[in-house]
């Protein structure tokens, strides 16, 4: 009895959280399609996520692409390295590393900021104030952020893919001394539309996860500055774990046969 109790309690808490999360995201998503729309707020969030995250996601992609080329050269040196490296770089970037690393970087940058901002609004009664001004906080605060996450992450990752491939190209040409035309040809030959699309779908899902975790933890924070602090941590940690978890699930869906 004594041993089962905590296990049961934890399980019930987990199920409860899942339920609340489902209700929260369901309600927020329904506000994305129901007027009125807050165009200014949506635009602002899109700029915040899509445009202002560009530098860190771009840098991450650049170095990832460069390191991919360098690492795979060690492994493929004895074989036809040229074709293999182009292949590894472009497939890893588009299918896997672009969306995952992009998602993780955005979780750190955007998820944390959202949880802190919404959490502060909660503990300083700004969310209550919204309601007294006949404004649904889910519609005004959460829905625009989810929409921006869903739409802007694919854009961000698409650019990251290009930068990553370019990083691999730089290393291959200037360090490893490959022929630029051949390298580009190889990159192009190996790339399939499905690789890019699957990566962008992943990005969209990760964008949703990051913004949902930021909003959910911020929205339910309590207990002053400390509560906001732990909401921020929880948002980043849960988003990162969920990204890795859903990365597997989505890969399985796209490529397992």
């Amino acid at each position: 009895m004594m041993i089962l109790q905590p296990i049961g309690r934890t399980f019930l808490q987990f199920v409860g959280t899942l339920g609340r999360l489902a209700l929260f995201s369901g309600a927020a998503l329904s506000h994305i399609v129901r007027p009125p729309f807050y165009a200014r707020v949506i635009l602002r969030q899109m700029i915040e996520i899509g445009y202002l995250s560009m530098p860190i996601v771009g840098l991450t992609a650049l170095f990832t692409g460069m390191v991919l080329a360098l690492q795979s050269y060690t492994g493929f040196a004895r074989f036809s390295a040229e074709g293999a490296i182009a292949n590894v770089v472009v497939l890893s970037m588009t299918r896997e590393l672009g969306p995952v690393l992009g998602g993780l970087m955005v979780a750190g940058r955007i998820g944390a900021a959202m949880a802190a901002e919404i959490g502060t609004m909660r503990v300083t009664e700004q969310i209550d104030a919204l309601e007294t001004l006949s404004t649904n906080p889910l519609k005004y605060l959460v829905a625009p952020r989810l929409l921006a996450g869903l739409t802007m992450l694919p854009l961000l990752v698409f650019v990251a893919d290009i930068i990553g491939v370019f990083g691999g190209y730089l290393v291959s040409i200037y360090k490893l001394g490959f022929n630029p035309a051949n390298y580009l040809q190889n990159t192009w030959d190996f790339l399939q539309l499905q690789d890019v699309i699957s990566g962008l779908v992943k990005a969209s899902v990760f964008g949703f996860i990051v913004t949902l975790m930021g909003c959910y933890h911020g929205y339910h924070s309590a207990g002053g500055a400390q509560g906001v602090g732990s909401a921020t941590t929880n948002a980043v940690v849960s988003a990162s774990i969920l990204i890795l978890c859903f990365d597997y699930i989505l890969t399985e869906m796209f490529f397992a046969r």
Partner: peptide
Amino acid sequence: SRDREQVNRKFGMLFQGAALFDS
């Protein structure tokens, strides 16, 4: 919540801590 929003149009509230939107 939708009916509540309708009712809340009748209200104005000054919060103890002002609760201004700082954005």
